[in-house]
Amino acid sequence: MSGEEFVPLSLTPLLIGIFAAVACALPGNFLVLRKQALIGDAISHVVLPGIVVAFLLTGVISAWPMMLGAAGAALLAVVMIEAIRRLGRIEPGAAMGVVFTTMFAGGVLLLEQTDTSSVHLDVEHALYGNLESLIWLDAVGWSSLLDAQALAGLPVELGRIAATLIGVIAFIWLFWRPLKISTFDEGFARTMGIRTNVLGLALVVVAAIAAVAAFDAVGSIIVIAMFICPPAAARMMTNQLERQIAWSIGFATTSAIVGYVFAGYGPLWLGAADAVSAAGMIATVSGVILALTALFGPCRKRAGAPAQA
């Protein structure tokens, strides 16, 4: 594929896919180790009612109100999960399940009851996003990367997800030590003066921001997959957290690239006429990677798991 075709049609969706995948996979490493992986799932589901409510209130499909609505819903969900967990004294997984299915169902109902037929807001869009449409029409080739006028026409989603990714990286870099210590041994972390409650909440908020930004660009399927699959696959490749993070970035990036290419060309190679959803294919590739590492990864045995009674 030449630059004239690749840069306007494929470069930006690819970059957005990669950034979204990595932005979710990074906090996903800690969520998986804290056995909170489901929270990514929860957040990406509750985002839907948030967006619908934002649309109902403002009457327009525009990014900022929707991002705010989604973020608000995510925070509400986190608070509700904590409240149900503490008041009901049940395990976090069950509390998450109750909250996110209820809120997602509410979102679907709201969506069906409202007249959104005139605007691009539907369940399918929420699930799969619209990665293929995030093209860069102002570009004519690689030279456009240096052309200020063409750069001004970049899809806004690219800037948002890039900024989100930078924020996620900054958070993890800055709080690396307390995150690692409190994920391993929360009680000890408290006695070291680490405010584990605040840090744990901050991690979930960062994950929520990544989920909302990624949802905006690529839909919830990728978000759900990327919080869990690359970190879980990475865990089976190494026994060191630092290397696990590196592997997860590699797996997220690979999923995004391979998934995007397969979605666009795979069906043609197989003789089918149409391309398939890039988001669906990216999520599928990440699942395949997880399956392969689960079968062949060098560190797939849970050596330190407590003995079964």
Binding site: L33, T183, T238, Q240, L241, R302, A303
Partner: peptide
């Protein structure tokens, strides 16, 4: 802390 209070499968 008690040894059993942490998951020794933690990658470290």
């Amino acid at each position: 802390p008690q040894r059993a209070s942490v998951d020794w499968d933690f990658p470290t």
